[in-house]
């Protein structure tokens, strides 16, 4: 991890945190109300560098709402978000992205008629010659950076010059994930990355997530897939009715799926979150 950090720090997207702690993301009392609906209530959440955390919960439990506040898709009602040592309140997804939070959306944010490098560099094209909107694209550099990103994430795509519409669902998802690796993001968020994929394609995506883990890239994974979460993550945070009701360390391997399900359904609540019930 340290090697990687050094490499990235020397690049054009500085990676070094101004804060000294190893916490990359923290939310304090994060709350979101839609009118009278309390979609998210007082969420205290911490993510350390290199950690992979799963967010689980039933539909409408507040998982997606929580992520939308962090990624700037929506603006939270109350609370604080501390990202990379700084207090942040993103006005839009682009600001979050510029700060280093990359999101793989449930609906793939890819342009079907463009090829892999075009998609990876969408909105942040590399240019040879600056001329305002008519700046000349540097196709060669973008291809090379794309290859680097694909190698880094372990994504295998037969032909990066092929358009996205010709690719399988798994390949598309891989491109979407590789995209997050292209820009040395500080935090990756994946919203149900394998929900629409077959067995083999799911395995491919899971391998990429393992690669990210080895490289020390922190990740928030929203998933309904218990096996996947148990396999890939260090910790499970369970949401229920807009509140966090459990924060379970699963690195020791002594936590069963049934136990997690009990938290999700409301059969159990961790003592420290009693007020949530």
């Amino acid at each position: 991890m340290s090697d990687l950090q050094t490499n990235i720090s020397s690049g054009e997207f500085p990676h070094d945190a101004p804060g000294t702690s190893d916490v990359i993301l923290e939310t304090r009392g994060l709350t979101k109300h839609y009118g009278g609906v309390h979609a998210l209530e007082n969420a205290n959440f911490t993510l350390r560098k290199g950690e992979h955390v799963a967010i689980m919960g039933d539909n409408g439990a507040g998982k997606s709402t929580f992520v939308r506040q962090i990624t700037g898709v929506e603006q939270f009602t109350r609370g604080e978000i501390i990202f990379d040592g700084k207090n942040v309140k993103f006005e839009n997804p682009m600001e979050a992205r510029q700060a280093g939070i990359e999101t793989v959306f449930q609906t793939l944010a890819l342009a079907d008629q463009l090829d892999v490098p075009d998609n990876l560099f969408l909105g942040r094209e590399l240019v040879k010659f600056k001329l305002g909107p008519f700046s000349i694209l540097d196709y060669k550099a973008m291809r090379e950076r794309t290859m680097e990103a694909l190698v880094k994430t372990g994504v295998k795509i037969p032909n990066i010059r092929g358009t996205i519409e010709r690719m399988s669902g798994g390949q598309r998802q891989c491109v979407a994930i590789a995209r997050t690796a292209t820009f040395h993001s500080k935090l990756t968020i994946m919203d149900e990355p394998t929900a629409a994929l077959g067995v083999q394609e799911t395995a491919q995506v899971e391998n990429i997530i393992r690669t990210l883990k080895e490289q020390g890239e922190p990740l928030i994974l929203i998933s309904h897939n218990m096996r996947q979460v148990m396999d890939l993550c260090d910790r499970i945070v369970v949401f229920r009715r807009g509140r966090i009701c459990a924060d379970i360390d699963i690195t020791a391997g002594d936590v069963t799926g049934e136990e997690v399900v009990a938290y999700i359904t409301g059969a159990k609540t961790q003592p420290q979150f009693e007020d949530a019930a």
Partner: peptide, 22 residues
């Protein structure tokens, strides 16, 4: 060959993706 051209295709291809890409 220009950013303008690439983004024109991108917006026509998937406007939401273009927007989310900033």
């Amino acid at each position: 060959f220009t950013v303008y051209g690439k983004r024109t295709y991108a917006i026509g291809s998937n406007e939401d993706a273009a927007r989310m890409s900033g």
